[in-house]
């Protein structure tokens, strides 16, 4: 699920085309990553307007840095790294000294009432009518509920699940981008996925 850590052959070819000012190559890259960058930016700065500016700055900085790109990382990693730097600068300017400094709100696990004292299931989950990604994707209402639930997650959990599960970055990349430890990253991902699964449970339980 996660992106390749190193520049692959497709990346190499794309970089050559970009350096030759191939417009189709640039549009291809924009179509592939712009929306993901914007969603990631929204987890790092306060407003839609700030996020849009940050992404625009990211593309500018990306082009400026492209000829010196050393290709040890994938283009995607490179883009998201630039984004994180731009977002940090922006957050400071917006006087949001740390984009991740807010307290997490109500954060009770959705499973809290479902176990007995011995850790046994009292209210066990049942098999779902859809237990594969394809089957879930085919249910529009469930996917809408999932997207809606994403917006309700505490900020840090939303950022991690966005970058990991939606944008497909690796754990290491997300730790670097959000400046969190490996363990903390996993805790945030775990809490987010637990809640999102509980949302789908409403739709699919037998």
């Amino acid at each position: 699920m996660s992106g390749t850590p190193h520049a692959n052959e497709n990346d190499a070819a794309l970089i050559e085309r970009l350096l030759a000012k191939d417009e189709a190559a640039f549009i291809e890259l924009v179509e592939r990553h712009h929306t993901g960058l914007l969603r990631a930016a929204l987890t790092m700065v306060r407003s839609q307007a700030s996020a849009e500016e940050v992404v625009q700055e990211t593309w500018r900085a990306f082009l400026e840095a492209l000829s010196s790109f050393e290709r040890r990382a994938s283009l995607k990693t490179f883009l998201f790294r630039i984004l994180a730097n731009q977002a940090r600068t922006r957050a400071v300017r917006d006087q949001r000294t740390s984009p991740m400094s807010e307290l997490e709100g109500d954060d009770e696990s959705p499973l809290v009432d479902r176990f007995g004292t011995a850790g046994n299931w009292l209210a066990p989950p049942t098999a779902w009518s859809a237990e594969t990604a394809d089957a879930i994707l085919a249910r529009k209402q469930a996917m809408e509920a999932l997207q809606q639930a994403m917006t309700q997650l505490p900020e840090r959990q939303r950022a991690v699940v966005q970058l990991r599960d939606i944008d497909g970055l690796s754990a290491e990349e997300v730790c670097e981008l959000l400046d969190v430890s490996e363990v903390h990253q996993r805790v945030l991902l775990h809490r987010a996925r637990t809640k999102l699964r509980a949302v789908l449970e409403q739709h699919f339980r037998g």
Binding site: P125, W128, L137, L146, V161, D165, R197, L200
Partner: peptide
């Protein structure tokens, strides 16, 4: 089943088409 459901949830998120 619980494990399958968590995994499917994460994968479905990643495969939802992004708006261009």
């Amino acid at each position: 089943h619980y494990l399958r459901q968590v995994r499917a949830t994460a994968r479905a998120l990643g495969r939802a088409p992004a708006a261009p």
